[in-house]
Design a protein around this nucleic acid. Structure first.
Length: 667
DNA sequence: TCCTCAACGTTC
DNA sequence: AACGTTGAGGAC
């Protein structure tokens, strides 16, 4: 009789054995998923090993009878032993179970007959563009593989993609595979089309519109070695290439590379691990690197910084100016309005950026002090005028808006704090003859609508494009001569050590949208904090300076990338219980630290309990949240400490602990 | 004495 | 995680 050893998506670090019925012996092999009875239900499990029962003859004596595998889900493997090894590494690094890790690595979904996943259009492929000296040098350096990691540091338009393509081509020609990660990828993404043309036939584009079965089909192709080039978002870092030669991470600073739920892995960390194991090269790039990357490329760490200082088509960076909004009593300052009139008068286009959806996000009663917040989350509701709804941006709760205070009936109530919807109304009033479109997750629910807006803007049918993050990233339109940042402060008020970094990077990214193809680009940045370092450095174009100073500040204060952090979040329906559990957890942490101190007398880099309190957003979707924040200068000791804490702390029912290693924000 | 609910333990 | 079993305490 054959037995199969499996992992399952449960938070238990255990492997389970099943009997393989003779009828399934052909189908059940390592790497396939199977349906198995588990307790009194049926779950999907991952087969990691198949062997004859007699191998374990001695142990089996008094073992209870094994259950039978019900059926095989895959006809051929969807992962290999390499992936199992990686899952075990992830389990150790992120404190999840190997089964949980494996199940985020392998795309889910049942098999079915799918439509072709991606039609490669026969489009122009411009592989013969002239390269700048810096580009040539960068390609040569990467191809020499003198370093394990490379960082392409260069402004928007400096030709990073071309370097990525050529470096990838070199790897592919030598018979190995390349994974190309991008922050997000839609069907309309021009990059995916470009890659598909450059590597015809042997590309897997894992875009967001794929069905689960299409995704798993691509996965099998990759595993069979039929693909040279894989392009996709975060989870594509797990693509099971048999001979991995390179991983490229485009826009390395993007937060979407970090997973938002357990296991909270970071694609950059996983990529580093995979490249080290496979002897592959890791190539990252951005105009605004994360501070983690900045630190790595400026110390002797095996990562080489490659600068692309000039724009490929020539042209100067946009002129940036700051408007102090304390002197203005309006949403669009006189200065910005004036610039908009000039640009529109020339028949050119404007992008307006505001990182806040909705009409207004604060309802307040002046009589009794009532504030309208979500009943399930501790955040205020945002008024969406078009839908005539009050909406919670955390959990999606909606209710109808009011004109009198629901608490005391007073008429002395007001809405304050503006979002894109209100700006849209104001801009439409100021520029009645201009055509205006709003681009955010509310205005463009489906991707078709979004693609349509972008096409119209590209063809000049829209004069002013107003939107959130979506307009800040990666879009390039030759007709744009002005970018207005309606309010640069929105990110600066959050109490997070990364807020300056985020604001800075966002400002530099949006400014890249202005005047990419001409010398007339202008950026007007409106802010209530004109003296803030992130604002002044971004407007002065002082990128290196900002990073060096910010890195110094992090070193002084012991924040990442110098100190490492771990966030332990305790959540539950019952507020008191969650709070006492968090306190209990904090005590366990404290005593673990004390034990470490005793065992390592004199060490200066021991972990510390950095803080314990309710999370900045105390309640989300009915769950009360408390956290214990840990920090340590030694990653190894911090890791050791978490391990000890996890062994000691067992959450009671109704209480859940989430472990966030290297959190991006402390919510 | 019955019933509900939360605490705990197991899952091949 | 998701489902059993068990046991304490409340209402009748």
């Amino acid at each position: 009789m054959m037995r199969a050893r499996v992992l399952a998506n449960i938070p238990v670090d255990k492997e389970f054995d099943y009997a393989v019925p003779p009828s399934l012996e052909e189908k059940v092999k390592p790497g396939v998923r199977v349906a198995v009875p588990f307790g009194n239900r049926e779950i999907t499990a991952f087969v990691i090993d198949v062997f004859p029962d007699d191998v374990l003859k001695d142990e089996i004596k008094n073992e209870r009878e094994l259950k039978d595998i019900k059926r095989a889900i895959d006809k051929e493997p969807v992962f290999s032993p390499r992936e199992v090894e990686l899952a075990k590494w992830m389990a150790a690094f992120y404190f999840c179970s190997p089964g949980e890790a494996l199940s985020v690595m392998v795309p889910g979904g049942r098999r079915d007959v799918g439509v072709p996943a991606f039609a490669v259009e026969d489009e122009l492929t411009d592989g013969s563009v002239e390269l700048t000296g810096e580009q040539e040098a960068a390609i040569a350096s990467i191809s020499s593989a003198s370093h394990a990691m490379y960082y392409l540091y260069g402004v928007t338009g400096s030709g990073k993609s071309e370097v990525f393509f050529r470096a990838a081509r070199h790897v592919v020609d030598s018979g190995r595979q390349v994974i190309y990660l991008v922050p997000e990828i839609t069907l309309t993404h021009q990059l995916s089309r470009m890659v598909a043309c450059r590597f015809p036939g042997r590309v897997a584009v894992l875009h967001s519109a794929l069905t689960a079965s299409q995704r798993i089909d691509q996965w099998k192709r990759i595993l069979r070695g039929e693909v040279d080039m894989i392009i996709g978002a975060r989870s594509a870092v797990f693509a099971p290439c048999p001979r991995l030669g390179m991983i490229i991470i485009d826009e390395e600073h993007e937060n979407s590379y970090k997973a938002g739920s357990t296991p909270r892995y970071h694609a950059r960390q996983v990529a580093q691990k995979r490249c080290a194991d496979a002897g592959a090269t890791l190539v990252m790039g951005s105009a605004t690197p994360s501070l983690e990357a900045w630190k790595l490329m400026h110390e002797d760490s095996g990562m080489l910084k490659l600068e692309l200082p000039q724009r490929v088509g020539g042209g100067r960076p946009p002129v940036m100016e700051v408007v102090d909004m304390l002197r203005e009593n309006r949403m669009i300052s006189r200065r910005l309005e004036e610039e908009m009139r000039l640009v529109l008068g020339r028949g050119k286009q404007v992008i307006l950026f505001l990182n806040r959806r909705g009409y207004s996000y604060f309802f307040h009663c002046a009589t009794c002090g009532y504030e309208m917040s979500c009943p399930h989350c501790s955040v205020s509701l945002t008024y969406h005028k078009n839908e005539a709804m009050m909406v919670c941006h955390y959990c999606g709760y909606t209710r109808s808006p009011v004109t009198v205070c629901p608490d005391c009936g007073s008429l002395d109530v007001g809405y304050s704090g503006f979002g894109t919807e209100m700006v849209e109304q104001e801009v439409a009033r100021m520029f009645p003859s201009a055509s205006l479109a709003r681009l955010d997750t509310d205005s463009t629910r489906d991707r078709d609508a979004m693609a349509l807006v972008l096409e119209d803007f590209r063809h000049g049918k829209i004069d002013i494009l107003l939107g959130t993050q979506m307009v800040a990233k990666g879009l390039n339109f030759p007709g744009v001569e002005l970018v207005g940042v309606v309010l640069a402060d929105s990110g600066l008020n959050v109490p997070d050590f990364r807020s300056r970094e985020h604001t800075f990077s966002l400002l530099v990214q949006v400014s890249g949208r202005a005047g990419r193809y001409n010398d007339k680009g202008r950026v007007v940045v409106q802010t209530y904090k004109p003296g803030n370092e992130a604002v002044t450095a971004a407007c002065a174009g002082d990128v290196d300076g900002f990073y060096d100073r910010e890195l110094d500040a992090r070193r002084e204060t012991g924040f990442p990338p110098y100190g490492r952090m771990v966030n332990l979040v305790v959540r539950g329906r019952n507020k008191d219980k969650a709070e006492t559990e968090a306190a209990r957890l904090a005590e366990i942490c404290e005593s673990t630290v004390s034990a470490l101190v005793r065992r390592n007398p004199g060490r200066k880099d021991l972990p510390e309990v950095f803080g314990t309190s309710s999370c900045p957003v105390e309640k989300i979707a009915g769950n009360w949240r408390f956290h214990v924040l840990l920090r340590g200068m030694s990653p190894a000791l911090l890791h050791q400490m978490i391990g000890a804490v996890v062994r000691q702390y067992k959450a009671p029912s109704g209480i859940y602990m989430e472990i966030d290693i290297d959190p991006l924000h402390l919510l």
